[in-house]
């Protein structure tokens, strides 16, 4: 079939999907313990930690990208660490984008999971503890199945939000085809070059993709109204 996508567009789409998939997995692994802690803690650190997690919601992506660039750059603390480990520096690489995207999309993953776990209340976990289940056991046999809608929503939103990002990517990743040139950056390039037809194909694709994703989230949440969150959309 002859589509309006060029070879470069297809590369950008493939790269975007790879970044979003890896980022979503990393987000679920990092976001779950943070969400679990936030949902159950009575600590006075709950407020500040919630605020840090939510920062990407309010900060301009360029601010986030700027600081990430500095921190991960050759003179930044993370940059020095990665260089000492022989990994080079992260900006302008695939993994640099994964790190940046993870931070940028963190609230979209933490908050639905946190809401779902809070909705469960402490009782099922206490019951499981009196039935000899340790903390990991409780997470996999009680929290995960009972708060599943929250985890599904979190994964979908984390993925979709990563696909849609632009500012942070441009700051941290630049515009290297096949490495950091994602869909949103490619659209920007097309528009700059006055290639409106090509920009339409990608932009239209994004609109359809986002619509489908959000429809999925909302209908999923309506079916399971009792638990899970609908944060952020």
């Amino acid at each position: 079939m002859n589509t309006g996508f060029s070879q470069a567009d297809l590369i950008a789409i493939w790269l975007t999907l790879r970044i979003a998939t890896v980022t979503t997995l990393v987000l679920l692994i990092i976001g779950s313990p943070i969400a679990l802690w936030l949902a159950r803690t009575g600590s006075r650190w709950k407020g500040p930690v919630s605020a840090v997690v939510a920062l990407p919601l309010v900060l301009p992506p360029t601010v986030l990208g700027f600081y990430l660039l500095i921190i991960m750059g050759p003179n930044g603390p993370v940059g020095e660490l990665t260089r000492a480990l022989g990994l080079g520096t992260l900006p302008f690489t695939f993994w640099g984008l994964v790190v940046a995207s993870t931070i940028y999309s963190l609230p979209f993953v933490v908050q639905p999971i946190q809401n779902a776990i809070e909705a469960l209340g402490p009782r099922p976990l206490e019951v499981a503890a009196t039935l000899r289940a340790g903390p990991w056991d409780r997470f996999f046999t009680i929290i995960l199945p009972l708060a599943r809608p929250g985890f599904v929503t979190a994964a979908i939103l984390g993925f979709a939000h990563t696909v849609g990002e632009f500012g942070v990517i441009l700051m941290v990743g630049g515009n290297i085809p096949g490495v950091t040139q994602v869909i949103s950056v490619q659209i920007y390039d097309h528009v700059e070059a006055m290639e409106y037809t090509a920009a339409h194909w990608l932009s239209g694709g994004m609109v359809v993709f986002s619509f489908i994703i959000l429809t999925l989230v909302y209908s999923f949440n309506r079916r399971r109204k009792s638990s899970g969150g609908t944060y952020g959309v």
């Binding site: 019951v127 503890a129 199945p145």
Partner: peptide, 20 residues
């Protein structure tokens, strides 16, 4: 000793079955 290591059986006030 955390609860899962104590040799107890505990019945809660309201029914506490796992609904899944």
């Amino acid at each position: 000793l955390p609860p899962h290591r104590r040799p107890i059986g505990y019945i809660f006030q309201e029914s506490s079955l796992f609904d899944h």
